[in-house]
């Protein structure tokens, strides 16, 4: 564990708390892509099933339980509790176009051709693109509530912080995880446009609006 990874994980944790806060206080899931949230559930379940048979640490265990349960809870909020506030007609990204290629990539690129390892690779690839329906929705509506942009910023910061973590681990432990690194770089790159608008507008006190 190093500080980059710790703050990355905390940022990930914060992003979910911000999202929950947004849904609970506005009593609405407007502006949130159900598809992206459903993809995150898939990612967490596929990757963290090892919590039943591999013990890493209490930290690792609790985070996994939190990520799985909170992501399922968010789906419940969107699909049941605040269902009327979710508008599927603007959440139109075809998620199957992401899942299919990720299955194929996982079958080709994995550290061992076993079920848990292929599942792990699949979750890494899927996580790297899971935000696309959300970003697509943002692009489509051209604007976002400020709280939603804070959610995305925290999520992007989590990914960005994992990069110095890998550099640090390479020098301190000699560890390189090429699958995680390549997928992680792709994932972080997807946030570049968003961060540009976030820094130049939202953090200057303006509304998140994309140029028409």
């Amino acid at each position: 564990m190093n500080l980059f990874r710790l703050f990355g994980d905390l940022s990930h944790l914060a992003s979910i708390l911000i999202l929950l806060h947004k849904i609970q206080t506005t009593r609405s899931c407007r502006g949130i892509s159900f598809k992206t949230q459903a993809l995150y559930v898939t990612v967490f379940v596929a990757r963290y099933l090892d919590l039943f048979y591999d013990w890493v640490s209490l930290y690792n265990f609790s985070m996994k339980v939190f990520f799985i349960s909170s992501s399922i809870y968010i789906l419940y909020l969107m699909k049941v509790r605040f269902r009327p506030t979710h508008d599927p007609s603007i959440d139109t990204f075809r998620a199957e176009y992401l899942v299919g290629p990720c299955v194929v990539l996982a079958l080709i690129f994995n550290y061992k051709f076993t079920f848990p390892e292929v599942l792990w690779s699949f979750s890494i690839f899927l996580e790297s693109v899971a935000i696309l329906p959300q970003l697509f929705m943002l692009q489509r509506t051209g604007e976002a509530e400020t709280i939603t942009t804070h959610y995305l910023a925290a999520l992007g910061a989590y990914r960005a912080l994992y990069i110095p973590n890998w550099i640090y681990r390479y020098f301190s432990e000699g560890v390189v995880d090429p699958i995680a690194v390549i997928a992680g770089l792709v994932q972080t790159a997807l946030y570049v446009d968003f961060f540009y608008v976030y820094f130049t507008k939202v953090l200057q006190g303006q509304k998140f609006e994309l140029p028409a």
Partner: peptide
């Protein structure tokens, strides 16, 4: 140089 397996990152 070891790879990321077993996986200790979240």
């Amino acid at each position: 140089v070891s790879t990321g397996s077993p996986h200790d990152e979240l």
